[in-house]
Design a protein around this nucleic acid. Structure first.
Lengths: 66, 66
DNA sequence: ACTCAATGTAAAATATACTTTACATTTGGT
DNA sequence: ACCAAATGTAAAGTATATTTTACATTGAGT
């Protein structure tokens, strides 16, 4: 799975810390998700999508092998 | 978080086993997600949404307290 | 060059997502 | 009523998501 988290953050001029506070997780969690270290829960994905006012699919995309 | 998994399955006349095979998880995993026992990973949510040809938000909705 | 905010990385601990196996209950068709 | 498929439930084990703490590196402004 890949994501466009960094792009969405840039569009809104948000730091990882800003987003982390908005979705109630640690800053490092945002970094890990962004870096593909691990896959977020659907609750987090929905929260993230809501912050950016897009659908989950706009941010997270399946890749071959998922 | 709540979900409309059962409704989507019914629309397509699919069993939990059918869906499980399509998204490569156990039948009990589908049951557990459907019953709200735990929250699926975003990869699973995307796969499920793809099977039903809808957006993730059509199936999974945030609730107060999430 | 200096400074500080932002980001990246790691490790250990904790919580939760998923699996397997087994059994129980419900549902739907005959 | 009977039967099989579908669904529900539980427990123990495994894998992964997330947290905290700490430190390193990068990027941007002065």
């Amino acid at each position: 799975m890949k994501n466009s988290l960094k792009v969405e953050r840039a569009k809104k001029d948000m730091t990882q810390q800003d987003l982390a506070e908005r979705i109630q997780v640690s800053r490092q969690t945002v970094n890990s998700i962004e870096a593909g270290k691990y896959v977020p829960s659907t609750v987090l994905a929905l929260k993230i999508a809501k912050v950016f006012d897009v659908g989950v699919e706009e941010i997270f995309q399946l890749e071959d092998g998922d």
